[in-house]
Amino acid sequence: MGRLSVDLCGIELDNPVIPASGTFGYGYEFAELYDINCLGTFSFKGTTLEPRYGNPLPRIAEAKAGMLNAVGLQNPGVEAVIRDELPRLAKCFHKKVIANVSGFSIEEYAEVCRLLDNEPLVGWLEVNISCPNVHGGGMSFGTDPKAAAAVTRAVKAVTTKPVILKLSPNVTDIVSIARACEDAGADAVSLINTLLGMRFDLKTGKPILANNTGGLSGPAVFPIALRMVWQVSQAVKIPVIGLGGVSSADDVIEMMMAGATAVQIGAANLIDPFICRDIIRELPARMDHYGIAKISDLKGGSR
């Protein structure tokens, strides 16, 4: 085990830095820019059973220290991902990848996971029960402990790979959702997805986003993410992957101090495409600065 390495559900990561789903495509746009094998792993674009074009434009709006998005799970569908995207990724990425999965019914989640279960490149399944930008699915499964548990059980029944449930912050009590997932057999949870937000165009008085509402991400949400990771990591025994506004090596360390085993980086990739590589390079010096010998010595890493 190296100084930066962490264990995520029995698979060793060289470092805890993981580009978050929806900000890293299927990896190869970034592989043109740098060797993405330096990453711990990454979570690929949210994949559904059928191809999805997503929401009408505009899908993006500026916010103070962040952004809103309402992309609406644009993706080519799981068959095309297995046929086209994963073979293309395999040429430039030699580690296990996190397959991010979305659905509109429990059966759809299970079917997508069943299909991806056969893929050797996929190390983990990250089940998104927290997308705020689609209707009749997504977040509705992540705002009710019973529904979250039902999705977890359905997915666990069709795969031997570790299952990560990606949780929504748009709930009264995220701890109850996390516990329900753990009790239903989840191997890990990742949090937080984006916070539901809105912006208006002052000239027209209308919402900027065609979907009206969207998910807020970026540094603005970092303290909320820390708080929720801290609460959840004290309440469950499974690993917690922390994300939400992380944009520096110090943020990674702080997120692990809050209880995260590994850390995802989302919106920051969209502003600085090299940020994950740079954070990995900077981590040892920042650990020296704070007197941290091994990153797994931090609270989350020691779980």
């Binding site: 495509g25 746009e29 970034f30 997503g54 505009p58 899908r59 993006i60 998005n69 992309v71 495409p273």
Partner: peptide
């Protein structure tokens, strides 16, 4: 011209059909 996020193909913010 469309409202963009990243500008390099990662976020799917500016996709048109």
């Amino acid at each position: 011209d469309r409202r963009m996020g990243c500008g390099f193909g990662a976020c799917m913010g500016c996709t048109v059909m």
